[in-house]
């Protein structure tokens, strides 16, 4: 087995793990999440690996559900964000100079405000809940990828083969479709995957602070913020396992991102 097969295999395996978590969470029977005071405050054991909380809810089930919500929000938000980035970046790179200036100003503006502050403002303004968080994340995360795409477009636009294509009578749309977009595809994919962990962490953070998902939804942010009250009472497992799971998911995405980068990188390709 050589390096490249290992990489692809590892990417597929990681994606599968994430998909399974997402699916289990989505298809989960609501009953599992119900409170059952007979089994409240159980420490981690074989039957309840993550323990139960003060209302007797199975923490493992809640964590999986929470992760799956995070994954779905992350997926939607980062796709929207990446598509926005490519459109805005391409526009900035191909349109007249004043369009580029306006878009550049917009990118700077969004980048200049701390993510979390902007995210809280937006999700608050559009009415919190899942919709609020998704919109909030989508409109705050496109900037750095857009900037990258813009500079790529500016660079490739000056390539001789693009100017030559024009002299061969090809239209701007043809050039965009056949020369520029195929060139951007790898950037797009890597950017998309690496947006994921950001989106998920920000979703959890906003929710933790109470501006995100409503408290009845078992999101990781909610679980963590609730568990804070019980930490001093010695209920360490309420925060530890969901927290670690969140970190694990984030690392999995990072792992996919950097492996895809390795596969697509021509300089790395022969090692």
């Amino acid at each position: 087995m050589n390096g490249r097969i290992k990489l692809i295999f590892s990417i597929i395996a990681t994606i599968t793990i994430i998909l399974i978590i997402a699916l289990v969470g989505i298809l989960m029977d609501e009953d599992v999440l119900k409170a059952d005071f007979k089994i409240k405050n159980i420490e981690p054991c074989l039957e309840y690996p993550f323990g139960t909380d003060w209302m007797g809810r199975d923490m493992l089930a809640r964590t999986v559900k929470g992760l799956s919500i995070s994954i779905v929000i992350g997926l939607v938000a980062s796709i929207v964000s990446a598509v926005m980035a490519v459109i805005i970046g391409t526009l900035a790179g191909t349109m007249p100079k004043w369009v580029d200036s306006i878009l550049g100003w917009l990118i700077d503006l969004v980048m200049g405000i701390p993510h979390l502050v902007l995210l809280i403002l937006i999700s608050f303004a559009v009415g919190r809940g899942i919709k609020g968080v998704m919109i909030g994340i989508a409109v705050t995360h496109w900037t750095s990828l857009a900037r990258l795409v813009r500079s790529e477009v500016l660079q490739i636009r000056n390539e001789f083969y693009i100017k030559l294509s024009k002299k061969l009578g090809k239209s701007n749309i043809y050039i965009l479709k056949n020369h520029i977009l195929p060139h951007l595809l790898p950037q797009f994919i890597i950017g998309l995957v690496l947006l994921f962990p950001h989106a998920i962490l920000h979703e959890a953070a906003v929710t933790f602070l109470g501006f995100g998902l409503p408290p009845e939804v078992p999101a990781i942010g909610i679980i963590l913020s609730e568990s804070m009250k019980y930490l001093s009472a010695g209920k360490w497992h309420l925060a530890l396992f969901p927290g670690l799971s969140l970190v694990a998911i984030v690392l999995l995405f990072e792992h996919i991102g950097s492996n895809i980068k390795k596969v697509l990188d021509p300089y790395n390709a022969q090692n």
Binding site: E159, Y161, S165, K167, L168, N178, P182
Partner: peptide
Amino acid sequence: GYNPVQLIYQHPEKSINPRM
């Protein structure tokens, strides 16, 4: 449209899209 005056460049690798 097609330019009746065509330039052939010194570096072929720059006049051809590497992804095509």
